[in-house]
Design a protein around this nucleic acid. Structure first.
Ligand SMILES: [Zn+2]
Ligand SMILES: [Zn+2]
Lengths: 414, 414
DNA sequence: ACACAAGTAT
DNA sequence: ATACTTGTGT
């Protein structure tokens, strides 16, 4: 029996009995003869219908995008035989069901970080917004008398009737990338759980992929047990979820019997905060008469920006430089100058006033600081000056009587 | 010998000699002993470094996204041994070269369909906009005396210095999808040619994929031969081109020798018309005074809301300069750099390719001219270099052995 | 052809 | 955090 620190590898379990033994130990029990709480699980490679020369015939025929030509991974995962209630029906139930053990899930109340948060849960929409491949804590509660050997399964299911029958799996891009997949037992699974006992399951009959972890009792004084989940594709991933709304069905199971169930719609995206806000406001605007928010400025009505000043036409000057390093620098500078010339006057003004405002803080008392207005006029040094300077090497300062200081914004990559 | 009606399958050619025989027959010649005009081509499966149980070891180790775990396809393609001039250099030349046979390419003049067109070519930008997986006619011209056995190769190459060394290939999603890949010999190739003699080639040393077709003489009364190409990923495909600008290098070759070359930047997108228009108007707004078109609705945020463009970073570096003249110059440069940093990547890329195109006319024979690609990397001179240069006065060029020339657009008012 | 959606660069 | 890019639905 061995842990790999994050997720369970079948490499280290010779049989499902080992997993069950470990599970029971966690519940303070020793291995018992009846190990059927996860019925008929038998280890096997996760195998897709594929054109590879895999010697093991695959019984999985996933419905979604092109899985038939996806390479077979050699990652060990559990393959579970029919678990009628949970998996093998073509449309798993998503009905909330507390059950006899008061199975509940919830999300931590977030500490006011509404912005660049990695996940956020909308109570009003019952929808979780989570950034791809980040860790999202989900809390589970059961009454204390849950029999040992129970597990919590997380199963993703499409919400629209047209798609419910499709198994939810990662898109080929993400499933076959090395990114995040190194040493992971189930690269093609959308949902991962950081639990060390996590086992990745694929239903041989409908190809649905899920992850199970043992149900554990909350620690003393706590009602909730927190488990860490990761979602490994965007809801928008082409060839995968492909913008199809999806929910995760969490079931408390024992002996293949569902003891409790809760479903949460999950949107996996790059900007959970933005998207939640957008969803909630559009929901608000149509549920009540809140004409409140339009989503869009009605297109081309947009006030067009003033076209920037016209540029004189195509005359070209040639500057000869006798050092490669200076040549490179000057190329960069020329490019910056010519690009800068494309910026609308308004933006330049904005930049300038920012600059001036910023510099009112940066004056160092023992240095001469050129007055902003005066400095601005520095912009009018003629290009010829620089040409001359560069080509005649007079960039060598005269041993100075004054020190000027100049501030530069960070992040300038040259 | 058999045709499949659209592209050439190695299934039907037992050896490259068959391909060559056919090629010569098309040129009105019978098979001849010397078949080396496509050097050392040997048929083989295209095989990626992969974790599949393919018994055939792969010599190809492509650079791009996750190819190492992509399934091996069983589609036959040609694998070409080193063709030094064209393929095996890590950065293939893209210099236009008419050569002795006046090799030229062009695009049909489009019949006013500016809208939902499937492809459009911008003469001003030298850039082709084409919808993915549609057929795009490209016209080739050579003088009539081209020796028999010549081929035309289409090789995609990334344009930015950071990516030029990556082989351009389809993203895993599209490469492994069944869509468009049924019976195609090269599902992972970005570029397809509808020619019945098309042969798909992969360089075993750098993984670059290309397609070759025989060069043919124009029909009587016509200068041009039209060939039909397809581009099988979006320029934006995640895990593939991934928004990286790309060009296609067309070479006229015989016996592995490049007889002529032309490169065309290609953007594969969903809306060629829209995107061309966007590119051209952003280009126009800089190069001439065409106040005509704005590029952007100017994001009403800018107009209505706080002008307080906050510097996210706010870090400020202070540079001391001991000459007033240099101080003025550096102020100007700093402003240009910081303004230039606000320009969207796309516009910068466009500026760069215009620059490169313009310079192809300005090469002066008795001056060393730094290759455009190489020069681009000059943009990566770190800011620290300039700081250092400016503050330690090392802008003094070493008495040069080379003269570099640099062109500057007019109208730069400093 | 327009407008939205949603990842990403800045 | 903002706003641009770009595929997609209508
Ligand atoms: Zn994905
Ligand atoms: Zn693609």
């Amino acid at each position: 029996m061995a842990f790999d620190g994050s997720s369970y590898h079948l490499d280290f379990i010779s049989t499902i009995e080992d997993w069950e033994d470990e599970l029971l130990k966690m519940n303070g029990l020793s291995s018992v003869p009846t190990r059927c709480h996860v019925p008929s699980i038998s280890p096997s490679n996760e195998t897709y219908a594929s054109s590879t020369s895999s010697s093991r015939p695959s019984s999985v025929s996933p419905a979604s995008f092109n899985s038939s030509s996806v390479t077979s991974t050699s990652s060990p995962v559990l393959q579970i035989s029919p678990s009628p209630v949970t998996l093998s029906q073509s449309v798993p139930s998503s009905t909330a069901y507390r059950g006899d053990y008061n199975f509940e899930i919830s999300f931590e109340h977030q500490t006011k970080e509404t912005k660049a948060t990695t996940w956020t849960y909308s109570e009003s929409l019952g929808k979780l917004y989570v950034r791809m491949a980040t860790t999202c804590p989900i809390r589970f509660r059961t009454s204390s008398e849950v029999p040992p050997g129970a597990v919590i399964r997380a199963l993703p299911v499409y919400m629209r009737p047209e798609h419910v029958q499709d198994a939810v799996r990662r898109c080929p891009n993400h499933a076959t990338s090395t990114e995040n997949n190194e040493d992971h037992p189930a690269p093609s699974h959308l949902i991962r759980c950081d639990h060390k006992m996590a086992a990745y399951v694929v239903d041989p009959y409908n190809g649905r992929q899920s992850v199970i972890i043992p149900q554990e009792q909350a620690q003393a004084g706590s009602l909730w047990v927190t488990n860490l989940y990761q979602f490994m594709c965007f809801s928008s991933c082409v060839g995968g979820l492909n913008r199809r709304p999806m929910q995760v069905i969490f079931t408390l199971e024992r002996d293949g019997i569902v003891l409790g169930r809760h479903a949460v719609e999950v949107r996996i995206c790059a900007c959970p905060g933005r998207d939640r806000r957008a969803d909630e406001s559009s929901a608000a605007s149509n549920s009540n008469g809140q004409s409140g928010n339009r989503k869009r400025p009605a297109s081309k009505m947009n006030l067009s920006i003033s076209p920037s000043g016209k540029r004189h036409r195509g005359e070209v000057f040639t500057l000869t430089v006798s050092s490669r390093e200076n040549y490179d620098i000057l190329c960069k500078i020329r490019d910056a100058l010519e690009l800068a010339a494309r910026i609308p006057t308004r933006q330049v003004d904005q930049y300038m006033s920012q600059k001036m405002a910023a510099e009112s803080f940066s004056h160092v008392n023992n240095m001469a600081s050129v007055d902003s207005k005066e400095r601005c006029s520095g912009r009018n040094v003629s290009m010829a000056t620089i040409y001359q300077s560069a080509s005649s090497n007079i960039l060598i300062p005269q041993p100075g009587k004054h020190l000027y200081n100049m501030t530069l914004a960070n992040g300038q990559s040259m």
